[in-house]
């Protein structure tokens, strides 16, 4: 499995943008450029100064991608999972072999399991950069907007004034890479809490502080 598995029109979606006939999740012109597969930092286009008072100019404010270290952290998790799975498979295969005999059937099953395992590991290794490239977020005076999804694409928007409280979470692996997860809670039901995982820690703190500071203080319900 390689990077080419991403539909090519997706790339176009995220990079180009001018024509209004683009698909709905097409990014604006200043979209973040995709990171290369090895997880190098994406190059941010220079911030455009925009007057946010007009409807049409909203599209031009800046999108940010997640921190590239997120890819490494995900791969690290994938590595742990791979090792555990491999060990389990090894133990299982050996036990079955000893109890039922190392027959041709055993060989076939072992090969099958091995192939599955290799495919899974390859997927876990190559998927993080692909999904990383399809996550981006934006904070403007309206609120927080998050886009994610490679095939099933989704855009979420939380108006600033609707924010109730926010959580900032760090697990041990995230701490190792200086990452954090921000969870924003609203009074809604279906999307009551919106998660943004894989931010750089300082970015997450600043984003959280800005969300809470800018929102003002009003009842939402």
């Amino acid at each position: 499995m390689s990077d080419n598995d991403v539909p090519s029109n997706n790339e176009i979606l995220w990079l180009s943008k001018t024509s209004g006939t683009d698909e709905v999740l097409t990014g604006p012109s200043t979209a973040v450029e995709p990171v290369s597969t090895d997880g190098a930092p994406s190059a941010l286009s220079p911030p455009t100064t925009v007057a946010l008072t007009e409807n049409k100019s909203i599209d031009q404010s800046m999108y940010c991608s997640l921190d590239p270290r997120h890819v490494q952290a995900e791969r690290f998790v994938a590595m742990i999972v791979s090792i555990v799975l491999s060990l389990l498979a090894l133990v299982g295969v050996v036990i079955v072999g000893f109890s039922l005999g190392f027959t041709l059937l055993w060989l076939g099953i072992t090969t099958g399991i091995l192939l599955l395992l290799v495919m899974l590991i390859l997927f876990m290794f190559f998927w993080p950069p692909i999904s990383h490239r399809h996550v981006r977020w934006k904070l403007d005076e309206i609120g927080l907007e998050i886009q994610r999804g490679v095939y099933w694409q989704k855009t979420l928007s939380v108006p600033l004034a609707r924010l109730q409280h926010a959580d900032l979470t760090q697990g041990p692996i995230q701490r190792q890479w200086g990452l954090a997860k921000l969870t924003v809670h609203t009074a809604g039901t279906e999307n009551a809490s919106v998660e943004l995982d894989g931010l750089a820690y300082e970015t997450a703190v600043e984003l959280r502080d800005r969300l809470l500071r800018q929102q003002g203080v009003v009842d939402v319900v």
Binding site: V32, P41, S42, L44, P47, T49, V50, A51, L52, T53, S61, M62, C64, S65, L66, D67, P68, R69, K138, L139, D140, E141, L168, Q170, R175, G178, A180, L199, A200, Y201, E202, T203, V205, E206, L207, R210, Q214, G216
Partner: peptide
């Protein structure tokens, strides 16, 4: 104080686009 580590992110706080022109409301 949640974490002491300081590292460069894709969006570093200094040149972060969240520095928005504030409207009257804000």
């Amino acid at each position: 104080a949640l974490s002491d580590e300081v590292t460069d992110g894709t969006c570093s706080p200094t040149n972060h686009p969240m520095n928005l022109p504030t409207s009257g409301t804000a």
